[in-house]
């Protein structure tokens, strides 16, 4: 170690003594600042933890530490799948109902749409007048 470094180390030793003698009020305010900073981390971590829990459950990893969290994640996943299935079924039923209503409310009977002559007449009507 060079003389310059030795001198620097001694200066730092003196500075360390200064931090030990820090005013109590300042030390308390630093502690409070640290707590506030840690709360910010606390607010950030749980959102990641749920993702981690799902991954752990699917991969069969170490789930002994957080069994409740793993169970909740699985439950949430199953609930999501069930709601999605039910919602899709509901939408399909609405669509079918609208088609049925339109057919029944029409002036034509539904059997008219199965008649080939009627289909040909419709195509002829839809074709441009010049053709």
């Amino acid at each position: 170690m060079s003389r310059e470094e030795q001198f620097a180390r001694q200066i730092c030793h003196v500075l360390d003594r200064g931090t030990e003698k820090l005013d109590h009020g300042i030390a308390e305010r630093l502690r409070a600042a640290r707590e506030r900073a840690l709360q910010r981390q606390h607010a950030f971590v749980p959102s990641l933890a749920i993702v981690g829990a799902g991954e752990t459950a699917l991969l069969g990893g170490d789930d002994e530490k957080h069994p409740l969290r793993t169970a909740l994640a699985i439950l949430a996943l199953l609930l999501g799948v069930a709601i999605s299935y039910y919602w899709n079924g509901l939408s399909q039923a609405d669509e079918n109902e609208a088609i049925d209503s339109a057919l029944l409310a029409d002036n034509l009977p539904p059997t008219a749409y199965l008649d080939k002559g009627f289909q040909a007449w419709l195509e002829k009507q839809a074709a441009p007048a010049g053709e």
Partner: peptide, 8 residues
């Protein structure tokens, strides 16, 4: 560990 030195 670092807060006091940081303050100084």
């Amino acid at each position: 560990e670092v807060e006091r030195r940081a303050y100084k």
